[in-house]
């Protein structure tokens, strides 16, 4: 672990909050009591981690199935390496795309290098969005596939060990 980024107190804060923020009136005071530092320091450290991007955001993480997004399609595309940055940025800018990454191919079984996640209420909605991506990529994509999730097997998020 890179101690230049997180010291022991920051790490204790990660451990104390990775499964969730206390649901009490003064949650940062509760954490302060658990860790043994002043509440102001808890708030200052969390703010700093947020500023540095160690914390992406603080808030609710919905179960997308439960809020109506029962179709979750990972669309994957084989685009030329020389144009992937330009195409990835354009696809990532589409308002319905939630994640867009360049990842390595695993030839011969896996020719795809652009991974684009699309959520919707039905497979047909997701497929119509995938068709929009296909139209945007045009001849820039040599082949593609869509992998729908059929079961969430586990969803806990980060769990570092004490």
């Amino acid at each position: 672990m890179n101690t230049a980024v997180l010291d022991a107190v920051d790490r204790a804060l990660v451990l104390a909050t990775q499964s969730g923020l206390p649901l009490v009136s003064r949650p940062y005071h509760r954490l302060a009591g658990q860790i043994g530092i002043p509440p102001e320091e808890v708030m200052a450290r969390l703010s700093r981690m947020l500023q540095k991007g160690v914390i992406r955001r603080v808030g609710a993480v919905p179960n997308h199935y439960a809020i109506g997004y029962t179709a979750n399609g990972m669309s994957v595309w084989d685009v030329p390496d020389e144009s992937i940055d330009e195409l990835g940025a354009r696809v990532g800018a589409l308002d319905f795309v939630t994640h867009c990454y360049h990842r390595p191919r695993r030839l011969p079984a896996w020719p795809y290098n652009l991974f684009v996640m699309v959520h919707g209420s039905s497979r047909s909605e997701v497929l119509s969005k995938v068709a929009e991506i296909a139209a945007l990529l045009g001849h820039g994509s040599r082949s593609h596939d869509v992998l729908f999730s059929t079961a969430i097997l586990k969803k806990t998020g980060l769990r570092i060990a004490p």
């Binding site: 990775q18 499964s19 969730g20 992406r56 955001r57 603080v58 993480v61």
Partner: peptide, 12 residues
């Protein structure tokens, strides 16, 4: 979950 979402890459 409800709380901070950590970006583990930024912690090394």
């Amino acid at each position: 979950r409800f709380g901070p979402m950590f970006q583990v890459e930024r912690m090394g």
